[in-house]
Design a protein around this nucleic acid. Structure first.
Lengths: 202, 202
DNA sequence: ATAAACAAACAGGTTGTCCTGTTTGTCAAT
DNA sequence: ATTGACAAACAGGACAACCTGTTTGTTTAT
């Protein structure tokens, strides 16, 4: 039975705010419990909205997941990697600074939830081609931005720059996996040091 | 209503075989759909056993997952990494051969499901400490075996060997993530080449 | 007036787990 | 050598909780 007008809760009527709230909450829960480990009910409860509101903005859980990747995950990589990279004087110095900054954040926070992009990639990119496509775009942008900055350095060809860019992404991603399983920032610091050596040697 | 004795199926009574069958099937499904993406019913159906049989050998899904990690995932790392490493003349040569062999397998197969250890680590190691503990042991063995072999090389200290071991694991793990999202063995080949350069430079 | 933005309740399928009953091997007593 | 007792190894559902998605109705902005 539906409720009467008397005791029905008032609507917020803040479409942009509600939508952003749902996206932010889903991103946080996916990051802590994973996509398949998070239920719609948990998202509804944590966001403090109703199931109807979620359904109005996102028809299915998959549609919500894809939007989280397109907006939140992409923005996260943009903020932590691409912007610092573009505004830095030296690419190798920026890479070291980014990774060591993350290691410091993790140790201060006391817990490591890992890289959102890698988390969702390993969970979903084989099982679902739609997710894979969205995730792949973000990786490609990341590698392209890195390669572009590494190409500016003296005495480096395009092929070397691309290979080094892929290696930076790989070593960072794997170090983050180690950091997650050890719950420590140390693997990231090791990775940063070894990447610095590799970037100096070429 | 329970079934009568007449038309009831005969028991297999092959405890070891049934148990191994369930473990193998669960490992395969976890590898393709993830832990939370796989239901008990799917495991039951794919293994061709009954729910009762699964419950007899593994009380809960989590208990089954932990056994898959302890036996199947650990054995997979042992087979592809530790044994080749121990029996090789040169550690750097073995590392290159292992990674490039995997890249060849993937291209021949036409699909990349990723590293079972990393897949489960990113999905579960933050959300559940019991899973994390089991996964961490495997990573630690992996790094220790690598460090031991890298230490044998001339002019290398224990600290450098440990750092390089962590970097080999990290770069491989991250390259496998790239391979998964690109569905190609190429990122692994790039990682192998760059690791060879790094191992030569020190 | 119309349509977007929600609130509330609900439908129907799926989930992990458990329970009861039957079959088979084992081992000791006869 | 046969039998009886007992425990392990399943078969076949049963079940409540939970899952995603929808529907219906009310509120607000334009």
């Amino acid at each position: 039975m539906l409720q009467t007008a008397e005791n029905r809760a008032r609507r917020k009527n803040d479409p942009q705010g509600t939508r952003t709230n749902i996206l932010d909450t889903a991103f946080e829960l996916f990051q802590t419990r994973g996509y398949n480990g998070t239920s719609m009910q948990e998202i509804v409860a944590a966001a403090g909205v109703t199931a109807g509101a979620v359904h109005h903005h996102f028809a299915t859980k998959k549609a919500l997941g894809l939007e989280v990747i397109r907006q939140k995950v992409a923005a996260s990589v943009e903020e932590t990697w691409l912007q610092p990279l573009r505004s830095a004087d030296s690419a190798p110095a920026a890479i070291s600074a980014i990774i060591e900054g993350l290691a410091r954040d993790m140790d201060a926070r006391g817990s490591v939830r890992g890289c959102p992009l890698n988390n969702l990639t390993l969970e979903l990119s084989f099982a679902d081609p739609d997710f894979r496509e969205e995730l792949r775009h973000i990786f490609d942008d990341w590698r392209a931005t890195l390669a572009k900055r590494l190409l500016e350095e003296a005495g480096r060809g395009i092929s070397d720059a691309k290979d080094l860019a892929a290696t930076v992404v790989a070593t960072y991603s794997g170090a983050m996996a180690l950091a997650k399983v050890e719950q420590s920032g140390e693997p990231l610091r090791i990775g940063a040091r070894q990447l610095a050596i590799l970037l100096r040697s070429r």
